[in-house]
């Protein structure tokens, strides 16, 4: 999977959780929780959604790496492409 494809998945999962958010306006390097009105339940749903969409396991210790969109893409790319 390319990084662009992974980013599209990340934004899609995010869009389902925060439908009111303007995803195009998000700064990929700033923490999602600082930019969106999301709480821990939303964030857990986000991680579960990524896991389901991409089929990768996301150990709890790695969750901090998913704080930003850039972080998500880099981390998930390494996981997805390692698996295949």
């Amino acid at each position: 999977m390319t990084e662009a494809e992974i980013k599209a998945v990340v934004l899609r999962v995010l869009g389902a959780i925060a439908p009111e958010a303007d995803l195009a306006a998000l700064d990929p390097r700033i923490s999602l929780r600082d930019q969106l009105d999301v709480d821990s339940v939303d964030f857990l749903n986000f991680i579960i959604g990524l896991h389901k969409e991409l089929g990768v396991d996301i150990p709890d210790a790695d969750v901090p790496k998913l704080a930003t969109i850039s972080g998500c893409v880099a981390y998930l790319a390494s996981r997805v492409n390692k698996q295949r």
């Binding site: 821990s40 857990l44 991680i47 579960i48 896991h51 396991d57 709890d60």
Partner: peptide, 17 residues
């Protein structure tokens, strides 16, 4: 909680709430 969550798959994690 942290120790417990390390052992758990994504779909089984606990939140402190």
């Amino acid at each position: 909680l942290a120790a417990e969550n390390l052992k758990r798959p994504v779909t089984n994690r606990l939140l402190y709430s």
